[in-house]
């Protein structure tokens, strides 16, 4: 027996919904088993819709999964593409995250009576944002640095985005010190300003000297200073005295002004 194929008119009627249930049933059952008729009915299918769905399907298949961090950042108003740049932590940054977690755990677990533990914690805490910022950019920590350097995206913007994760981590550390270190919340606020000042200086100088060397030098200088004041005056709190806070604040303001001026100049010459 010759295989039966539905003619184009019947299929067009089917596609339009002009067939009764019995014949619709018949056609649909037939289509399940006949490739030729499926090809014929394709002629009366909705072409633009099919093209659109294909493009959307490909898009869904290729779409990289959006991480929780990206969702949070987009929710607070960052553009999705910027959120993507900010949320992909390099392995160096991940290592930094783990060390911060360790530092926090250490602060929580260490007995309160051990003064030297607290002292070292206070000495090291301002360095946390410095290192976090230093790891955001540069040939030492970014495996695809050269490709990044050859791209038009604003370098400063990229560093700031990649350093965004420094903020919650520093904040968490502030919380931890507030809860565990004797002296409470005021203590935790005290080391914040030096930390910010050091980070700002890192940002300002990294373009010329490289992030890691600058961060290393500043970290060393800070440790020497803090330990020096401890040795000299008997308590590390001198390193957080009002004079120091003022210097840090001035540094921050100076760096910000300088950066703004630099951008203004760059804007003028383009």
């Amino acid at each position: 027996m010759i295989a039966w194929h539905a003619d184009a008119q019947l299929l067009a009627a089917y596609a339009d919904g002009r067939l009764d249930l019995a014949r619709t049933t018949s056609v649909e059952q037939h289509l399940l088993g006949c490739g030729t008729c499926r090809a014929t009915v394709a002629a009366v299918a909705d072409r633009p819709l099919l093209d659109r769905v294909w493009a959307e399907t490909l898009d869904v298949l290729d779409r990289p999964p959006v991480s929780a961090a990206e969702r949070i950042l987009t929710a607070v108003g960052l553009a999705p593409s910027a959120a993507r740049l900010a949320s992909k932590a390099s392995s160096a940054q991940r290592a930094w995250l783990w060390s911060c977690a360790l530092l926090a755990a250490f602060a929580i677990a260490a007995p309160r009576t051990e003064g030297w533990v607290i002292m070292w914690f206070l000495v090291l805490a301002p360095l946390v944002p410095v290192i976090g910022v230093a790891l955001a950019y540069g040939p030492d920590t970014d495996p695809m640095h050269e490709v990044v350097a050859a791209a038009p995206y604003s370098r400063l913007r990229l560093i700031l985005l990649r350093s965004l994760l420094v903020i919650p981590v520093t904040g968490a550390l502030v919380l931890v010190t507030g809860l565990t270190v004797p002296g409470g919340p005021t203590m935790s606020a005290l080391w914040l300003l030096p930390g910010l000042a050091l980070s700002a200086m890192t940002l300002a100088l990294e373009a010329r000297l490289g992030a890691l060397p600058v961060a290393a030098a500043l970290s060393l200088a800070w440790i020497v200073f803090a330990v020096g004041t401890r040795v000299g005056t008997g308590t590390v709190m001198t390193a957080y005295g009002p004079a120091v806070q003022l210097v840090c604040l001035t540094t921050l303001v100076a760096v910000a002004a300088f950066a703004a001026y630099g951008r203004h100049q760059a804007g003028r010459s383009s």
Partner: peptide
């Protein structure tokens, strides 16, 4: 696979 089956699926879904 899409070229072969998406059209008739679309028509049948439309019904």
């Amino acid at each position: 696979l899409y070229t072969r089956h998406a059209p008739w699926l679309q028509v049948r879904l439309r019904r």
